[in-house]
Simulated assay, not measured.
Amino acid sequence: MSYQTLQRTVTARLEIKKSEFIAYAYPVTSREQAMFHVEQLRLQYTDARHHCWAYIVGDPDNTTSAGFDDDGEPSGTAGRPILNVLQHKSIGNIIIVVVRYFGGIKLGAGGLTRAYAGSAQAAVDEMKLCPYVAMAQVQIQADFATEAQCRYVVESLNGTIDDVAYSKDVLLNVTVAERDIEVLKIDLAIAGKVVETTD
């Protein structure tokens, strides 16, 4: 699974025949997260005519979660063109929302399609893309004497320690890149640690 995703939120603006198109792109990892951004923009731009969007969660070439909405624009003229830009550029884990203020001049179906695709492309042009890295949660069981070593190994793999529970042993809940789980197991097995992936 190799695709690009954006590092941070970006915004781009286009004016076409007096209509203003404001495109926002956000990194997301779920449909719920994507819809949260749509609702936030509806609240921020309550006077806008349309809030059209498209999202892809996961690999854009083999996704099981993608969606779009024309939000009152003629069918197929807004959400689908935004989605097409994301798929063409192979960008995943993203939503682009385009807020439109109508300027009084009708653009027609072809004009709308070009405007929304152009708005999405303008947002893409502002993006800093990076390879997507799938993460996994892992539990590490260790004794008190080797806790510091466990922390060192996790941090050396650019992982994060999410939670630590102390009883007769130490239980560390950590997040690391899926590709690094085997390295983590090998590095910690030397010291007799138990490593289990969690769902």
Results as ranks from 00 to 15, higher is better:
2 S>F: 13
9 T>G: 01
11 T>L: 14
13 R>Q: 11
13 R>H: 01
14 L>Q: 07
15 E>M: 14
16 I>Q: 01
17 K>D: 09
17 K>N: 09
17 K>G: 08
30 S>V: 12
34 A>Y: 02
36 F>G: 04
37 H>C: 04
39 E>D: 10
40 Q>M: 07
41 L>E: 08
43 L>H: 12
45 Y>V: 03
46 T>E: 09
48 A>E: 01
49 R>M: 12
53 W>G: 00
53 W>R: 03
54 A>H: 11
58 G>N: 13
60 P>M: 02
61 D>S: 03
63 T>R: 12
68 F>P: 03
72 G>W: 06
75 S>E: 11
82 I>K: 01
83 L>E: 00
87 Q>Y: 08
88 H>E: 02
92 G>E: 00
92 G>N: 02
93 N>T: 00
95 I>S: 00
95 I>N: 05
95 I>C: 09
97 V>S: 05
97 V>P: 01
99 V>I: 12
99 V>S: 00
101 Y>V: 04
101 Y>Q: 12
104 G>T: 04
107 L>R: 00
112 L>H: 08
119 S>C: 01
119 S>H: 13
122 A>V: 09
125 D>M: 09
128 K>M: 10
132 Y>M: 12
136 A>G: 11
138 V>W: 05
139 Q>D: 15
140 I>V: 12
140 I>N: 11
142 A>W: 08
144 F>E: 14
144 F>K: 08
147 E>P: 03
149 Q>I: 07
158 N>F: 14
158 N>E: 09
159 G>H: 15
161 I>W: 11
161 I>T: 14
163 D>K: 09
164 V>I: 15
166 Y>P: 05
168 K>W: 10
171 L>Y: 15
172 L>P: 10
174 V>M: 13
177 A>L: 03
179 R>Y: 00
180 D>W: 10
183 V>W: 05
184 L>T: 03
189 A>R: 07
197 T>K: 02
198 T>K: 03
